[in-house]
Amino acid sequence: MGGSDGRQDDGPLAIRARGITKCFGDVVALDGIDLDVTRGQIHGLAGPNGAGKTTLLGLLLGLSVADGGSLEILGAPVGRALAAPDGVAGFVDGPGLYPSLTARRNLGALAGLRGRGRSAAAGADIDDALDQVGLTEVADDKVRGFSLGMRQRLGLAAALLTRPRLLVLDEPSNGLDPAGTRHVRGVLERLAASGTAVVLSSHRMDDLEALCEEVTIVATGRVVFSGPLAKLAAENRELDYRLLTSDACAARELAGGTDGISVVSSGATRYGADSLVVRAPVAALDSLVSRLVGAGVALRELAPVVSPLEAAFLALTEHKEDAR
């Protein structure tokens, strides 16, 4: 992050949180949270309902202050004042939009807050933001008639308009159709490529897997995992995989005879009569694939029944919930 692109040279970390605690009365919402998010990275935040994600996002957006611990955002320590830190934008619990205004007017009013409401440059930025999220055609429609997905995209456009260096998003894919999802993902990837850090809270594991290099999983106010997705997958060695082969009977026999593999189901499963579900670590699965090929059985499909992230999420959070 040098000065050549006009950004402040204030360290590689967009977020550095240490021992963050936050209580609401007797309820401990955050209990010693550590979090590092690098600039230019899309960082996933996952956790069950009530885990403290929204509280954490609220702290990042300046909606509340931590009771304890230290928090640095974009290189600057966050004080006790209730205000969004410099360069931070985003939303929690859905974007805040005014239904009586059009999409363009919503963004124009926001631009006006920054003193740029009526300038030609502001108009161009608004058009640009609407274009990025694919809402150009409905720019002059009132938000009252927007679907949830359109509102999400407009919320993202509103965040883009502030030219954030840290973008905090809570469930941005809620209500999005496949085209909308692709739009949003494209925007986030381009933002990250330009150096903006993105914190993405989502229950949709496909989103996190598609976008995030690193992920933090919280449960009951504590971090239960934080790191690269690959590390998470590696930590959860046994997964259920679905196999579709040219000869289901042979495949079942070969799977049953391979060390480390257990057949979970075969035959008439919801995946089809020719499918097979096995539970195995990656190394055993590699061995099975070799044996299938050696036996002349064509492998048509091999995929985890649930994604590694989802499996890890369930394993980590269910364990935590049980412990509680």
């Binding site: 640009d128 933001a129 903006t196």
Partner: peptide, 9 residues
Amino acid sequence: ATRAAARVP
């Protein structure tokens, strides 16, 4: 996207 994001905040 890059142009919008790369401006001085």
